[in-house]
Design a binder for these strands. Sequence first.
DNA 1: CAAATTATGTCAATTCATTGATATAAAAAT
DNA 2: ATTTTTATATCAATGAATTGACATAATTTG
Lengths: 158, 158
Amino acid sequence: MSRRQTPPFDPGRFEIANRLFFRLYQCSNLLHKNGTRSIGEFGATTQQWAVLGALARPLVHEKGMSVKELIEFLMLSRQNLTAVLDRLEARDWVERVKDPEDGRSRLIRLTVEGNRTWSAMRPAIETFYGKALMPLGEDEQVRLYQLLDRLRDGLADV
Amino acid sequence: MSRRQTPPFDPGRFEIANRLFFRLYQCSNLLHKNGTRSIGEFGATTQQWAVLGALARPLVHEKGMSVKELIEFLMLSRQNLTAVLDRLEARDWVERVKDPEDGRSRLIRLTVEGNRTWSAMRPAIETFYGKALMPLGEDEQVRLYQLLDRLRDGLADV
DNA sequence: CAAATTATGTCAATTCATTGATATAAAAAT
DNA sequence: ATTTTTATATCAATGAATTGACATAATTTG
């Protein structure tokens, strides 16, 4: 229970919120820096890995995803995603194919090469996950992503 | 106890880690987008607000912080911080003064104008915090920043 | 005193992120 | 059939993030 309408902000509440978002900022910087370094041998970035990961999911892998779906899933702007897709397409890791059911829409799919690269990256990603999550038990990892889920919902509604 | 040395990665563990970092990525994008929008009237960004917030802390406010300390606190590169400080200095929100105790070092301090701006921003930041944290109770907010603390430590050690 | 380290800055290249404005083509609605 | 909406793309500007290489000045070390 107890979801307040407009929470009053005493100094304590502000401090907690401040720490929370500052940690988020720090984690975000570290994820980008060290995550990208850990897959440096492939010349990819964490953002590209997020796109490949989205497209490699079992239910998506064959039909692909539209740009609109990718934007909503990754929560970034269309202009930005277009640029990332351009780089991925230039490396022949993804392809844009016309949607047979909607001529306006194009489906983004992993190429064979993109699939191969994603598989090759997985061990490096697993190593990164393992090291980065060292201080957290499995139950805490679940708790953390559930809390991040709700934070995301809150952030999206601002 | 049970802090594993090299955690074996069964599919379940990978899935949990994957969700966790993906949520982190989404939250990071949303924080940047909606956070910056919520202080848009000041023409500042969440990064600039992080720097101002760091410098506005009671124990720091008078003496300031060196660039090195700011880099370690904010966890970003020197080249990047220099650029952010340049923009803040151009707006007369921060100043670089020589450290009387170390001629190599320069102390970054809030100017009077920077202090004024930080105070003016606070209500907008409080509103943002309030909306973004709507789905989370106070106890959950504390739990979340503690978990992020440990994730940050893990990410830093990769 | 000379050499090495430290703190900062600068220059350059790349990627990622935003917004805003504009364009094109196809689907849907009137 | 015309209009409107939708999906995508493009162009431009700005800010933020990384890395690498180099420069300078001051402190510390040998």
